[in-house]
Nucleic acid binder design. Structure first.
Lengths: 141, 141
DNA sequence: CGGGATCCATTCCGATACTG
DNA sequence: CAGTATCGGAATGGATCCCG
């Protein structure tokens, strides 16, 4: 793959074709985490967790009860990935039995700004998307 | 799963615990396309295509050359899904050999507003995420 | 040129069982 | 309570061949 600044010419003869240059590097997998990030955000549970933790810190068991459909395996894994990317932090309290709390970091709160905008858009436009799908499925398949 | 408005109480004794109610319905899979949408956007190629088509319409082969790493199978499939959700449209010109053009719809352009904000954020903060990952990987396994 | 069909590798995710 | 370990099915994505 390798960081590619794709030079983009129309397939019409070069002479009259305006040469446009599009920088797709920003979305290149190997160079930057944009794709990586969206891959992570696009995971089945990540946005749900970010949404929940954007409110206040929660303990593991609380999150689990909030999202009954998540398995503890995926809950652990998703939290670890969010933590690894620096969006949330994990604090262990040495009680017996131990309790663990997860909270957003500054980076996570920063991410939440544009992310919540996108989520709001999605929520506001789900009817349009649904309609488009039904139209497509009717006309085609 | 089923649409769940999760009633969320802290695990501290109910008497003194403030009862908070968090509506996670918006992110429920079965109810609304927020999760669906992010699933789609989180796909390996979708954002790349939306980014490209937000500039101007392109033909199949042009897109293919712009993104050399995509297979024609995934290009076709990704374009179909974006079309199905109403973000792009497809026009066939009855030339010989046939040519097909893809362009953004109004809905697609609307989506691009919050989406590009998120992409910009990701691009601007990739250093922070990278640093967080290295720190995590060093401190842990 | 712009696909469709098929096969295969990888990754994701859920269910279950066990632990400090 | 908050995990870890293991397994198997499902979904995702890539390679290749074929077609009007």
């Amino acid at each position: 793959m390798a960081g590619s600044v794709v030079s983009l010419k129309s397939s019409i003869p070069p002479a009259e074709a305006p040469t446009r240059t599009v920088d797709l590097t920003a979305l290149d997998f190997s160079n930057c985490p944009v794709r990586d990030m969206l891959n992570q955000i696009g995971g089945k549970w990540s946005t749900l967790l970010i949404e929940a933790l954007s409110q206040r810190p929660y303990r593991f068991g609380e999150l689990r009860r909030m999202i009954p459909d998540i398995s503890q395996r995926m809950l652990t894994q998703s939290l670890r990935e969010l933590q690894r990317d620096g969006y949330i932090e994990r604090e262990v309290f040495p009680t017996k039995p131990p309790s663990v709390e997860y909270r957003m970091t500054d980076l996570g709160r920063a991410l939440y700004q544009p992310l919540s905008q996108l989520l709001n858009w999605a929520e506001a436009n789900h009817a349009a998307v649904k309609a488009a799908r039904e139209r497509y499925d009717r006309d085609n398949g």
